[in-house]
C-alpha cells in the first residue's frame, strides 16, 4: 500500500498520537509491501517538521499557509484529499484523537473510501488485511474489512507501540487546493493550564471520581498527583459537576489512556469509564464500597474512605 500518515498538531506542538499512526503505517507497509509518507498541515511549521522526519518516511509533505493556522474540518479535509489524489495514496492513517475523529470520516467520505476508527491491530484476511478495533465501550473487539481501493484508518494510541526510527525523507511543500472560506470560523479555545503532564500520554494518572464530593478536594488530589509526577484524569460525573473541564474526562467518550499506574480514587468503575483505562498497566482503586465494579478490573485495591487514605498517601510517598 502507498500510505499517507496525517500528523496532527496540538497547541502548536506535534501531538503524541502521531507516533502510533506512524508505527501502524510502518507495520502496514511491511505487511503489504508498501511505503509511507507523512503530511503535516498548519502554519509556520518549519521547526516542527524536523520532529516528524525521523521515521523512515519516503517524503514529508508540508502544507503551510495562514488559513491552516487553526484546525478547521472543511479546509483540512480538502487539503488531505487533494494530496491523496495528487500522489495516489491507497491508505490514509491518523492517530485517534478528537481532531481525527472529526475529520477522518469526512476525508473517507470525500474519497469514497471505507474507514475503520481506532484500530488496534492488523489481521490477515484471505490474502488481504483486516483491522481489529474495540467496540461497545471496549467490551468487545471487532474485525472489520475495507473493500474500497483506499483504506482510511485512525489508530488507537493505547494499543500500538512507538514507531521505529529511520532516515529522513524528502521534505516537499504541497500547495493545497481551496481558498479562504468563511463557513466555519475559529473563535477561541478555552482551556485550563495545569502544568502537569499531558493526560493522554502520562506514565502515571490520578483519576478523581464523584467520591471526592466537591471541587475543593481537587487541591488534595493535585498534591498527590504532583508527588507522583502524575496527570489528573476524571470521570464524567466530575466533569458534569463542573469540577474539572471536559478534557480531563477518561472513558468511552473521553480520552483512552494507557499509563503505567492509574490510581482510581472514589470512582465506581462504570463500563463507560473503564473503556478508557483498559490499556493501563496497573490500576489501583480506592473505594469505600467493596462491591464497586472498579475492583473487578483493578490490580490493587483498598476498601476505605478516600478522605482518610489520600492524605496518608501524600505523607508516605
Amino acid at each position: 500500500m502507498k500510505i499517507l500518515v496525517v500528523a496532527e498538531m496540538q497547541l502548536g506542538k506535534l501531538k503524541p498520537s502521531n507516533g502510533a499512526a506512524v508505527r501502524f503505517a510502518q507495520d502496514l507497509a511491511a505487511k503489504t509491501g508498501g511505503s509511507f509518507d507523512i503530511v503535516l498541515i498548519g502554519h509556520g511549521l518549519a521547526d516542527l517538521a524536523a520532529g516528524l522526519n525521523k521515521y523512515g518516511a519516503g517524503a514529508l509533505h508540508v502544507i503551510d499557509a495562514p488559513r491552516f493556522e487553526n484546525y478547521l474540518p472543511g479546509s483540512f479535509c480538502a487539503a488531505v484529499v487533494g494530496l491523496v489524489q495528487a500522489e495516489g495514496y491507497t491508505a490514509v492513517i491518523g492517530g485517534e484523537a478528537t481532531t481525527s475523529r472529526d475529520i477522518f470520516p469526512r476525508i473517507a467520505g470525500a474519497l469514497g473510501a471505507g474507514m475503520c476508527k481506532g484500530v488496534s491491530a492488523i489481521v490477515d484476511a484471505g490474502g488481504g488485511v483486516a483491522y481489529q478495533r474495540a467496540v461497545f465501550s471496549g467490551m468487545a473487539l471487532r474485525t472489520e474489512r475495507i473493500h474500497t481501493p483506499i483504506h482510511v484508518l485512525t489508530v488507537d494510541p493505547t494499543a500500538v507501540g512507538e514507531p521505529a526510527e529511520g532516515p529522513a525523507g524528502a521534505v516537499k511543500a504541497f500547495a493545497a487546493p481551496g481558498g479562504d472560506d468563511d463557513s466555519v470560523k475559529f473563535v477561541e479555545r478555552r482551556r485550563a493550564e495545569s502544568g502537569r503532564p499531558d493526560l493522554a500520554v502520562a506514565e502515571r494518572v490520578v483519576g478523581a471520581g464523584r467520591g471526592i464530593k466537591s471541587a475543593d478536594y481537587l487541591e488534595t488530589i493535585g498534591t498527590l498527583a504532583d508527588k507522583l509526577g502524575a496527570a489528573i484524569g476524571s470521570t464524567r460525573a466530575v466533569v458534569d459537576a463542573g469540577w474539572l473541564p471536559n478534557e480531563f474526562q477518561v472513558g468511552q467518550t473521553g480520552k483512552a489512556i494507557a499509563p503505567k499506574l492509574y490510581l482510581a480514587i472514589g470512582i465506581s468503575g462504570a463500563v463507560q469509564h473503564s473503556a478508557g483505562i483498559r490499556g493501563a498497566k496497573t490500576i489501583v482503586a480506592i473505594n469505600k464500597d467493596p462491591e464497586a465494579p472498579i475492583f473487578k478490573i483493578a490490580d490493587v485495591g483498598i476498601v476505605a474512605d478516600l478522605f482518610d487514605v489520600v492524605p496518608k498517601l501524600i505523607e508516605k510517598i
Binding site: G114, M115, A140, R142, F295
Partner: peptide, 24 residues
C-alpha cells in the same frame, strides 16, 4: 458495503485477581 464485519472477540481480561490491601 465499503466495510464489512468479519468477526468478534472478547478482549483479553486484565491480570485477574485484585490484590486487596488493608491500609495506606
Amino acid at each position: 458495503p465499503q466495510v464489512t464485519v468479519e468477526g468478534f472477540a472478547l478482549p483479553a481480561g486484565r491480570s485477574g485477581e485484585c490484590r486487596m490491601v488493608k491500609d495506606a
